[in-house]
Amino acid sequence: MDDFTKVQNMVATLFEAPLESVTLQSSKDDFVLWDSLNHLNLIMEIESEFNVSIGIEEIAEIRTIQGIMDLLKRHRNK
């Protein structure tokens, strides 16, 4: 399973959204359940699934699915 598919599944499950509604262009405004608590739940799932540690500044910057993918790419290139 590729990274986008993993993230897509996480977001769809966590925010109770149809899988096909989660695209690279999706933002937190597209999901009713993407609140501050679920934002942290998403961060913890990403850290666990991809074995990364996301900094405080990065947590605040995540607002889109593309942003998550960019973050993962940056962490892989460290």
Rank of each mutant, 00 (worst) to 15 (best):
M10L: 13
I65C: 08
M1I: 12
V52R: 00
I62M: 07
I46N: 00
S48Q: 15
V7A: 13
I62S: 03
L14M: 12
K73A: 07
N51K: 15
R76M: 11
H39N: 13
D70F: 01
T23S: 12
A60I: 11
L24P: 05
V52N: 01
T23P: 10
I43G: 00
K28M: 10
E57H: 06
S48G: 11
K28A: 07
L14H: 11
E58K: 06
S27V: 01
F15L: 14
E47W: 09
L14S: 14
Q25G: 10
R76T: 15
D35I: 01
M44S: 03
Q66M: 05
Q66C: 07
T13K: 06
S36W: 00
K6C: 04
L14N: 15
A12G: 04
D2F: 02
V52Y: 01
M10C: 07
G67L: 06
V32R: 07
I68K: 02
L40Q: 05
I65F: 01
M44H: 02
T13S: 11
I62E: 07
K6M: 07
N51Q: 12
V7K: 06
F50M: 06
S53M: 08
Q8H: 01
K28Y: 00
S53Q: 13
T5H: 13
L37Q: 13
M44V: 09
R63A: 13
I56Q: 05
A17D: 08
K73E: 08
D35A: 05
E20Q: 08
S21C: 08
M69H: 03
I68C: 04
T23H: 06
E20R: 03
V7N: 08
L40V: 11
L33T: 12
I56T: 09
L24Q: 14
F4Q: 11
R76Q: 15
S27L: 00
L40Y: 01
D30S: 11
E57L: 14
D35S: 04
M10I: 13
V11E: 04
N51D: 15
L42M: 09
I56L: 11
N9S: 13
F4N: 09
L71V: 10
D29K: 12
E47C: 03
K6G: 04
I56N: 08
I54G: 00
L71H: 10
F50D: 04
L33C: 11
I59R: 04
V32D: 15
G55Y: 14
N41T: 11
T5D: 14
D30M: 02
I54Q: 03
N9Q: 14
R63S: 15
I54V: 06
I54K: 06
V7R: 07
E16A: 15
E47H: 05
F31G: 14
N77A: 07
A17K: 02
A12N: 05
V32P: 07
D3N: 14
I62Q: 04
L19P: 11
M44P: 00
F4S: 09
L40H: 01
K6R: 15
M44C: 05
I59P: 00
V32C: 10
K73C: 05
A17C: 09
N38H: 03
V52Q: 01
